[in-house]
Design a protein around this nucleic acid. Structure first.
Lengths: 258, 258
DNA sequence: ACCTGAACACCGTTCAAGT
DNA sequence: ACCTGAACACCGTTCAAGT
């Protein structure tokens, strides 16, 4: 079964000619089926009716191949995310969720989408985020920092949430894993872990996707407040220990605990 | 179950006896020196004066070993983060930055700190975050969601920022990489990438650590606003495309574009 | 209980040789 | 330009055998 993705039928190249796209497509399929460890140049070559060496003509090495595969599935997000003009904030939110969902369909992918963007769809994503951020009316000097922060959140937190599902092993799946982790938490000493030991119920029945949107909304909410907080960008960078300003100056940027 | 937890110094075990701690310590050193690919059971065994098989008595496999190593360096964060009572928000911020810095010292580690927490220091971190969140006075039902959101941000975004530095190759380092990426952005078509093409300067001279704190402050800022937005938790979960509520209900949670 | 080290079953990658 | 496939230089992991 030759896996020939559509080759423009212009020339007389063999119908099953190799190309980077064909290889990446087959890699995605293999990755979906057998996980990152299951992707092998030998196996991939066999499925494409060649030898392993042939693949190296189109792809530098396995790292690049996996990165290209991850970027490929990232592209799915643009199909679902609506361009409609509901306001920049709403579009940002929709785009972020579309990315999460796209990566969620291919658990191996999330951790291979890296920043700063160099591959096609990662570039497209960041540009779109930036364009939307620019539309919010926030000060232009902050566009880059805010856009990359959002971009980091989307891919970083997605990876964090989705990655534990990547190990192809546990067929029992997510629920069993969570239940098992919850059990571990229950056995901890409440004196050492006061929070975890009283929170096991939430762990058991939380929804991963809700988790993603919770933090996302926090972040987008913060965007609202941020216009006034321009000054905050100046001071905290250098404080190595992360201590707040020694003078106890007004820190509108931190949630007050009173 | 070969868990050689603390060896009581009663017997006359060889001074250089193997234990999980010794192995993890040596693994961290090797990881720091030669990166993830440089860590080999053969090499590690040689440095510990044994055969590779011996290691498997104390550690299930390489995945577990790397996870333990990552959790080990995560522990460094607790040394720097001050417990002082500057308010929950400030402490949260300090803790987050301490984690970033700890992971930044061991670029291979960030991507291996996974959620939900199962290893010692990851548990400790999440418990601490939860305890601090509980102190903010936010509604108790939201403590779990908010704490994990913060935790996801810290480890996920750290990984995202730090990971590109992990490849042991590029001795030229981060700056060269950024400059090179900036060049790529400059060559893009402004019609397709309006944002990126006008933002290359920011990419070139941004500071990674500032990037981390920018998003962090956004997130913590959002915490302030969130008390009023309790309702927002209910609706968005099910909307698959990520569209906002169809009725056009008041959406205090999104940045207004006006 | 813990360690040894040879052996198994793989890998990614290269490269001379072909078309 | 592109493909072939054998060969190189490794790996992680297992396991009978030792102490």
């Amino acid at each position: 079964m030759p896996r020939t993705r559509g080759r423009a039928p212009d020339g007389k190249g063999r119908a099953d000619a190799l190309s980077q796209e064909v290889i990446v497509g087959a890699a995605v399929a293999l990755l979906d089926e057998r996980g990152e460890r299951g992707l092998t140049f030998r196996l991939l070559a066999k499925q494409l009716n060649t030898g392993p060496g042939a693949l190296y003509w189109h792809v530098t090495n396995k790292d690049e191949l996996v990165a290209l595969a991850a970027d490929h599935v990232l592209g799915d997000a643009f199909a679902t995310a609506p361009r409609a003009g509901e306001g920049a904030g709403a579009e940002l939110r929709a785009l972020a969720i579309a990315v999460f969902d796209a990566l969620d369909r291919h658990p191996w992918a999330a951790s291979h989408v890296t920043a700063p963007a160099t591959l096609a769809n990662a570039l497209r994503l960041l540009d779109r985020i930036g364009t939307l951020v620019a539309r919010t009316g926030l000060p232009a000097e902050r566009h880059f920092a805010l856009s990359t922060a959002i971009s980091y959140y989307i891919t970083g937190v997605s990876a964090q949430i989705i990655a534990p599902r990547a190990p192809v092993g546990a067929t029992a799946g997510r629920d069993a894993f969570l239940a098992q982790t919850a059990e571990r938490w229950e056995e901890l000493d409440p004196a050492d872990y006061p929070f975890l030991t009283r929170t096991t119920a939430d762990l058991r029945d939380h929804d991963d996707r809700d988790q993603f949107t919770t933090g996302l909304d926090l972040l987008l909410n913060g965007l609202n407040t941020t216009t006034a907080g321009l000054d905050q960008r100046i001071s905290p960078g250098r404080t190595v220990t992360g201590r707040t300003a020694p003078g106890g100056s007004p820190q509108a940027s931190h949630p007050s605990s009173r």
